[in-house]
Design a protein around this nucleic acid. Sequence first.
DNA 1: TAGTGGTCTAGACCACAAT
DNA 2: TTGTGGTCTAGACCACTAG
Lengths: 241, 241
Amino acid sequence: MKTIGGSAPLYSQIKDLIIEQIVKGVWSPGDLLPSETRLGQDYGVSQGTVRKALDVLASENLVMRHQGKGTFVAAHTPDRALFHFFHITSNNGVRQMPSSREKGMTRRRALREETLKLRLPTAARVIQIDRVRALEGRPVIAESIVVPAKIFPDLDRLPLEDLPNNLYQLYETRFCVTISRAVEHLRAIAASPQDAAWLGVEKGSPLQLIERVAHNLSGVPVELRISRCNTRDYYYESVLD
Amino acid sequence: MKTIGGSAPLYSQIKDLIIEQIVKGVWSPGDLLPSETRLGQDYGVSQGTVRKALDVLASENLVMRHQGKGTFVAAHTPDRALFHFFHITSNNGVRQMPSSREKGMTRRRALREETLKLRLPTAARVIQIDRVRALEGRPVIAESIVVPAKIFPDLDRLPLEDLPNNLYQLYETRFCVTISRAVEHLRAIAASPQDAAWLGVEKGSPLQLIERVAHNLSGVPVELRISRCNTRDYYYESVLD
DNA sequence: TAGTGGTCTAGACCACAAT
DNA sequence: TTGTGGTCTAGACCACTAG
């Protein structure tokens, strides 16, 4: 090893090399990584240094470690989606994955705001999905999802009915895009006529707006998701520490 | 060491011992801890094991480490408050601490809901503080803070004007209560007449409700804080990863 | 210069999972 | 039984801070 003489620590370089392998698809989500000792031999560092790199990756939820089994590349299982990327919880404290009803999918030019948030060239093509998500049988979330057509080619060729509830799993399996991080901006807004109709509330009644920008493993923004939630029976949970 | 034979790992026991010292006030926020080697001698474990314990504490923001200087008990500096416990950000991406104008402070019996959320006996005494917080000179947040009178004795003896902007610093210095973790529940609501007047918005206009339960080092809930925010020019930021 | 945390190594032993 | 990650140790060297 000892790639760069006087810069980042070894374990950090090892970590970057492992991420690189995942980005390149050498190791895919769900795959078992080589053992710590094996990786140490491959990279020419001690097992302890590999361990430190994997510890960091595990703390960032990019790999999962299981004593006796090995270290696995993190995959967007339903559990992980619910735990990390879905924060709407019932007033009684129960959190469950909503069902989805797709309302439409279109391909169009990106709006100026979208080119900024997704770092796209002007007039780049995007694909928009609109859907309504229900909890306990009732519509609760009106959602618009915008992704670059370049990163998700032919996504709009898929029949609407074939879109899975868990889109991040689809991104992973069909487009080699792993969502690893997201930033959400929340605010309260008044329901538009469209949202009011979809969610079965009065026009103008307060809705929880959630604007999410989701990033891939390399930190590139790849999805813009705008949700309007009826928070009469639900809340958004955020843990600070 | 080797306190408990076959249970938690050594570094975890060391971690608990260090937390215990902080809770007991042997080491206070801002204090410099003994060095790793010294702690290792004191507890009868290797320096590496102490390091692991401190690494965990640092990842939980309970201690701060500075190369060449030492390890310090985390304190509620303005920066830390802004970074960890204040998530309202201007539409232009700038985050700054709001100013506060106190509206009142009362001592009363806890409501049923408060006894549940703060795990208090029925009819326990609480102290409530109401205040309006401003950003860039304009009122943005109407806030109600409820704390158990038992944990914050004579808080209501303080003149309203003496209440600092950063309450968590006051908790720490005057009452030996360190806030280390908080859970927030967010939803959209319609402005009440009171909130509308305080925030200068129309009655019924959408406000961002934030219900926070804050915990001390031992995980005991010690503060209930309900904020109503005008999110026309601001948003609540949440980072998922 | 002395003391601190940060990195890296090497090796031992344990707990767990699969075969 | 074998191989994995988890814990613990001991020691070396580096980078930063302060007197």
